[in-house]
Design a protein around this nucleic acid. Sequence first.
DNA 1: TTGTAGGCGTTATCAG
DNA 2: CTGATAACGCCTACAA
Lengths: 339, 339
Amino acid sequence: MPETETAPTLDDVALAARVSTATVSRCINDPKKVSQKTRDRVEAAIDKLGYTPNFAARSMAAKRTFTIGAIIPTMENAIFARGIQAFQEELYQHGYTLLISSSGYKAEAEKEQIKTLVARGADALLLIGHDRDPAIYDYLERQRVPTLVAWSYDETAQTPSIGFDNRTAMRALAETVIAKGHTSIAMISGISQQNDRARLRIEGVKDAMLARGLDPDTLDPIEVPYNVNDGASAFVTLMSRHPRPSIVMCGNDVLAVGALRGAAELGLNVPEDISITGYDDLELAQVVSPALTTVRVPHREMGRNAACEIVDMIEKKRKGVSQKLKATVVERASVAQVQ
Amino acid sequence: MPETETAPTLDDVALAARVSTATVSRCINDPKKVSQKTRDRVEAAIDKLGYTPNFAARSMAAKRTFTIGAIIPTMENAIFARGIQAFQEELYQHGYTLLISSSGYKAEAEKEQIKTLVARGADALLLIGHDRDPAIYDYLERQRVPTLVAWSYDETAQTPSIGFDNRTAMRALAETVIAKGHTSIAMISGISQQNDRARLRIEGVKDAMLARGLDPDTLDPIEVPYNVNDGASAFVTLMSRHPRPSIVMCGNDVLAVGALRGAAELGLNVPEDISITGYDDLELAQVVSPALTTVRVPHREMGRNAACEIVDMIEKKRKGVSQKLKATVVERASVAQVQ
DNA sequence: TTGTAGGCGTTATCAG
DNA sequence: CTGATAACGCCTACAA
């Protein structure tokens, strides 16, 4: 392995292959513009020297970084992990690198991170959900940074999105539990401010209630951050309501696990004394007991498709097209049949 | 907000502040070399234009990218999430960006990703654990890429590391359970090939057995990938051994949760019929029932410290110094007192 | 099909 | 303390 101290450059390759740097560059970026013969020679030289293009130089000259930025609300639980991993793998296939940062569900932090990623020259951005200060979308437009939204689908939004219809999926889940005889429904939601997914899941439950002759105003959801502790205490609060609900629907699996813990603290059996549902179908959902009835989200598919779409947006310079994925109800043991 | 179509450059700022580009550059990179007066003028211009340095250009000229690469085995469960998040936050404070990729616990994939990150000009690399092909360390050395290992501490290794002593921590846990009267111990480990953490945890249990007069050879651990399903089936296998162990120690919490599920499938009560332990103290560990006795790892501290260390290695061009963090036994409900 | 040469936005070395 | 100016490594018209 004759690896020298300093990395070989285009010049070195050109010299070794007895061609100009332009030709070497073409071989790499647009091989069909080079004759087979010289291409072979160049490729041999590249191999021999172990040449890899210098990304900074390439970025500067081409005005592209082959980097895509993604800002997710959190890496700390599994909500986004599977999808993002798939996103990254697919991106890698296309020669792009993913730059991830997490905002901790804070709008201000997200705004700052968007600017950082743009300053770093991200060729495109993946954002979670549609809800954010319109000024951000203006900024992105002015900077000409293609943007795709995931984990949410909204055909009416300006920004293209790949995700599922949170409202419809949650409605389906709610109708399922209503069909099981539950008429007194409570809900623990994530903070719905600046979070369309949380908001739409609430709406979904209300839709179902309305459709089945229940009064949506009685839902009165409690909103808490997405973590186990807050889920548990919200659950305890709900249990002191009169009349006591027969089911607590949660904005996601993490909250539902919290609710489960709250129930244990109160000495309530699930689902005999109280039913609980989640959303997301994280691995967590199958692991707790009882296993959670929840909504399964096609994480990997979403990640892969988002990657393909965003690469297309960049390379074909065209506006992204939205894609609606199916989210399905998964029934497990945490919901009882009533009566 | 007079934001123009194309981002402002150093030249624009220099023009606006009536100084040379060199001065503007100094203001940004080494402010104390510029007089207060001009500095004020330059900063005003920067603000007014909303200037942000172009990273690609800066990287090329400075031969640094302000990017640090990290390769973790997986993002799919929470094992590395907390630590990496802390790592990233701290890095951000120092003006660096983190590039993460995950290898899926595959050595070949890791090798390839290392090369990608180096090609992208990462100023330094964070790797998980020490075990890997020595050729990789050679390569990194030749390329002059500072490298730090985390999640493992080994003072004898060439590469500096920040982590905990997996062996000692696991030994402490094993001694705790032995003190509770367990003499028939079984173990579900992660794949120990190319994974010093898994390997050392096995050794830790054996150390304890030896110290307490049990025969380490009877441990005979089963090795499986770190996921719930494999943990569950390994557990079932173990339960058919004669004599049946009174406790199953697992290589991490994910496997322990699998074991818990395996126990449920077999109709065994934990800890009455069988005790189980984990490692890592993920949120998961407190959420399952019974809650897991496990080893708590200082994830955030490790991430933060690793960030500070790696920045120092880059900026002071000095070899990193290893750091041993404390991992402590956390007793919960999944281990019974025997007799 | 191939080569020439200018430029991308910074940093850093020298003078002044 | 400040200003020219030469790199940095690659891409891409434009020419040949």
